[in-house]
């Protein structure tokens, strides 16, 4: 049996992981090897001493110190953090907020998403009222709108045209 195997047996013996028959066999083996018997005694001594090391108790001011930290934590929270910590009937509202956000995103996609997608990549048609007077919405005539492509917008800005609606390219 190698030294490694014997050490593994020693640790199993120390941890109380052996059956009674295994203990008998191990003790017989150890008694035949004085060096390993000495090693076992050292491990047993180490175990016993580590079980008896000083056990500290919390000081009298421990809970007061902890309560101070909790107080500081609660008072330093932003309104949003306090809102997230809000509980209704014992339930935190964070899961509800998360679910609401997901529903909002999904419904926004179905409600507005199809209008925003265009068949022609990033080209979009913008209907522009070229006859609008500068700053005067009352004179806008919707019938005189003209469909133009986005690259022409730069020219439009020079003409002070007003954008009346946006549609996807057909």
């Amino acid at each position: 049996m190698s030294k490694y195997d014997l050490e593994e047996l020693m640790f199993r013996y120390l941890d109380g992981e052996m059956s009674s028959s295994e203990i008998q066999e191990f003790e017989a083996l150890i008694n035949e090897n004085p060096k390993y018997k000495e090693d076992l005694k050292k491990y047993q001594d180490l175990n016993e001493k580590m079980n008896c090391i000083s056990y500290l108790k919390a000081s009298d001011g421990f809970m007061a110190g902890l309560n101070q930290k909790i107080y500081a934590l609660n008072n330093n929270k932003s309104w949003f953090e306090k809102f997230l910590d809000f509980e209704f009937l014992g339930f935190n509202i964070r899961p509800l907020l998360g679910a609401s956000l997901v529903v909002l995103i999904i419904s926004s996609y179905f409600f507005y998403g199809t209008d925003l997608t265009s068949q022609n990549g990033n080209k979009m048609v913008i209907h522009v009222n070229e006859n609008s007077n500068k700053g005067n919405l009352a004179s806008v005539d919707e019938d005189s709108s003209t469909a133009i492509q986005i690259p022409e917008i730069k020219q439009l800005s020079k003409q002070n045209a007003k954008i009346t609606s946006v549609k996807g390219n057909k």
């Binding site: 008896c52 108790k57 000081s59």
Partner: peptide, 12 residues
């Protein structure tokens, strides 16, 4: 001073 050690503990 700290009084942290539990009473009766034998400290080596």
């Amino acid at each position: 001073i700290s009084g942290n050690i539990e009473e009766g503990t034998k400290v080596d």
